[in-house]
């Protein structure tokens, strides 16, 4: 046993000890600062405040309210950056050939049946994180990355061919991604385009009604706060992130040499 192993074992056991002390003593509690700065205090007071209708966003999760309502334009451009980076992947790997017809080999039967059980659960958890983004910690990006784990699991345990037979191809994912981005842009423009013909004040990226504009997104569904456009933005962001990252993973998994040999054989046969 050399010195590295001893250092690793000591540090890991000390970490476990410190974590259990933290959890048992205070339950991760006291790290929250007691005093808030004025900006933070105003966000906390206004993010869910039905009595102050001109400043609220009806979102119980303050982080999501800031990300998609108070600072919505920043997040819109972040989404565009993700979109452009996936497009850059496509530019680097251009000229790929996507053929189905290779056999499904995959891992053993045990791994396959467990993946069949686990992968839908992961996707459901991702969707729940996305569409509850205004109520609990989470949001569109978080839910999308959680759901991408299920897609990569299916690619690794079954094979890429399984996804093709289920109807998931890179061109369809690309289409889904573009539709999601289009939906986000249309949602951000919707209130302005409703207000403009009837000569009512409305703003781009507007969520709730303001002092000088009466138009508003739906704020409450039955008795659950819906937070208007934040719900829609989270849903569409989930679609963009899921399809974009699955697209990148599928592009990197393509077995180029085998596909090339199949293509050459088909050309010779013709």
């Amino acid at each position: 046993m050399n010195r590295k192993d001893i250092a690793l074992a000591l540090s890991l056991s000390l970490l476990v000890l410190a974590l259990s002390l933290t959890i048992s003593l205070e339950g991760l509690g006291p790290i929250v600062p007691r005093e808030l700065r004025p900006l933070g205090a105003s966000f906390v007071q206004n993010s869910y405040n039905p009595w102050n209708a001109s400043l609220t966003s009806l979102s119980l999760n303050v982080v999501t309210a800031i990300v998609w309502d108070y600072r919505g334009l920043d997040t819109l451009y972040e989404t565009l950056v993700l979109f452009a980076s996936i497009a850059a992947t496509l530019v680097v790997l251009r000229g790929y050939s996507e053929l189905s017809g290779l056999g499904i080999k995959g891992l053993s039967d045990v791994s396959k049946s467990v993946t069949v059980v686990i992968a839908p659960l992961i996707v459901v958890y991702g969707i729940a994180t996305a569409i509850h983004g205004h109520l609990t910690p989470g949001g569109g990006f978080q839910g999308g990355t959680i759901a991408v784990v299920a897609a990569t699991l299916i690619i690794a345990v079954f094979s890429l061919e399984y996804l093709y037979r289920r109807g998931v191809s890179t061109s369809r994912l690309m289409l889904l991604r573009i539709l999601g981005l289009l939906a986000i842009i249309l949602t951000s423009l919707s209130l302005a385009s409703i207000g403009m013909p009837s000569n009512v004040n409305a703003y781009i990226l507007q969520n709730m009604a303001k002092d000088d504009s009466a138009l508003s997104m739906p704020g409450v569904l039955f008795d659950t706060p819906l937070a208007g456009s934040i719900f829609l933005y989270n849903l569409f962001e989930f679609i963009i992130v899921f399809s974009g990252l699955t697209f990148a993973a599928m592009m990197l998994v393509l077995r180029e040499s085998e596909l090339e040999s199949i293509k050459e054989a088909a050309e010779v046969y013709e």
Partner: peptide, 13 residues
């Protein structure tokens, strides 16, 4: 209970 034996199985295999 589901995942740990599966991981060990695929590692060993």
């Amino acid at each position: 209970l589901i995942l740990a034996p599966t991981g060990a199985h695929s590692l060993a295999r």
